[in-house]
Amino acid sequence: MSLFGLYNDWIVIVLMMTGFYMVIAHGNLVKKVVGLNVFQVSVFVFYISMGKVRGGTAPILEEGIELYSNPLPHVLILTAIVVGVATTALALALVVRIRDAFGTIEDDEIHALEDEA
């Protein structure tokens, strides 16, 4: 298999590293959450592409079709997306409260305020 043949894996890796980098490098708490989402989405893509069977169609029972994609990873990812949404919602709610309490959502400023207290 050529390197190009694994292009979906490459996309996963690029997305994952981008998201990871955002989480680590960005001081803005909302941007961190965005990064976290990108990070998670990369894993979703990874799962979905895993379920793909070459030449298979959507997993719906139909006359004359023998080859289906694997539906299980897709179902799993539905669950994972729900978890991801919940996480994002909670994270954003926290950010709102942090802004109320500290007046800023920049990590370094919050650190400075925390050390004062």
Binding site: V23, L29, L36, L94, R97, I98, F102
Partner: peptide, 14 residues
């Protein structure tokens, strides 16, 4: 507590 929870959330989700 808010920032602690937020940081825990980021680490925990990763």
């Amino acid at each position: 507590a808010l920032t602690a929870a937020y940081r825990y959330l980021i680490m925990g989700t990763i």
